[in-house]
Design a protein around this nucleic acid. Sequence first.
DNA 1: GCCAACGTTGGC
DNA 2: GCCAACGTTGGC
Length: 150
Amino acid sequence: MQYWLLKTDAESYSIDDLKRDGTTPWTGVRNYQVRNYMRDQMRVGDKGFVYHSSTAEPAIVGICQVASGPIPDETALDPKDSHYDPKATPANPIWYCVEVKYVKHLKRPIPLAELRKTKGLEKMGILQKGSRFSITPVTEKEWKIINDLI
DNA sequence: GCCAACGTTGGC
DNA sequence: GCCAACGTTGGC
């Protein structure tokens, strides 16, 4: 089993939205590296941190779980969707996503600033300068360290 | 709202 | 296939 960190803009889709929906396809990713994680590496049962970006205090706020294998990202095929990609077709969807299931809120959000200060997390994708990947792998060690912060 | 970082696009 | 310009992300 692997661990992940899934970034989301709380304004557009928050952990509360995920709780309400229960399970949701993680659509809208238009970065090849991140698509490849979802298409090739994420497995049903993998766990992930849910991270809110672009808020007053960016933070890890909850835990989710991968609930499906790769499926075509429907938003790429929908001309009305803001993530529409005219090059995508049903035969060659280009963009894939996985379904993500709500597990729980953390007892308290863990702010980015705290992650930065915590020993052993220096290599986390989320902490790298200019990292733009909305999904990054988390090592088992990092997963444990963060769970111990709660 | 600013701006650094960086992936993507497109002209050549 | 290089690389400048562009657009977007996201922390501050």
